[in-house]
Computed example of a mutant assay.
Amino acid sequence: MKTRAAMDGNEWVLNGSKLYITSGEYAGVFVVWAVTDPDAPKGKGISCFLVESGTPGLVIGKAEKKMGQAGSVTNEVVFQDCRIPASALMGKLNDGFRIAVGELAGGRIGIAALALGVARAAMDAAKAYVKERQQFGKAIADMQGIQWMIADRETELEAARLLILQAAWLKEHGKPFVREASMAKLFASEAAQKATYTALQMHGGAGYIRDYPLERYARDARITTIYEGTSEIQRLIIAREVMKAV
Rank of each mutant, 00 (worst) to 15 (best):
T3H: 00
R4E: 13
G9D: 02
G9P: 02
N10M: 14
V13N: 00
L14M: 00
L14P: 02
S17H: 05
K18Q: 04
G24M: 01
G24I: 00
E25R: 07
E25K: 13
G28M: 04
V29W: 03
F30Y: 15
F30W: 09
V35M: 11
P38K: 08
D39I: 00
P41H: 05
K44W: 03
F49C: 00
L50A: 15
G61L: 02
K62E: 11
A63C: 14
A63M: 12
E64S: 14
M67D: 04
A70C: 04
S72F: 11
T74D: 04
E76S: 07
E76C: 08
R83N: 08
I84N: 02
A86F: 14
A88Y: 04
L89H: 11
L89M: 12
G91A: 05
K92E: 15
F97G: 05
R98Y: 05
I99T: 10
A100N: 04
V101H: 09
G102F: 10
E103K: 12
L104Q: 11
A105L: 01
R108Y: 09
I111Q: 10
A112F: 12
L114D: 14
G117C: 11
G117F: 11
V118S: 01
A125C: 07
A128R: 05
A128L: 02
Y129K: 11
Q135P: 00
Q135M: 13
F136M: 15
G137K: 09
D142F: 08
G145W: 11
W148F: 08
M149E: 04
R153E: 13
E154A: 13
E154R: 06
R161E: 12
L163T: 01
A167D: 03
K171S: 13
E172R: 12
V178H: 06
R179V: 03
A181H: 03
M183P: 02
A184K: 04
L186T: 01
F187M: 09
A188R: 05
A191K: 04
A192E: 02
A192K: 11
Q193N: 12
A195L: 11
Q201G: 10
G204V: 02
Y208N: 08
Y208L: 15
E215D: 08
E215W: 10
D220Y: 03
R222E: 12
T224H: 02
E228H: 14
E228C: 14
T230N: 14
R235A: 11
I237R: 01
R240W: 09
A245R: 15
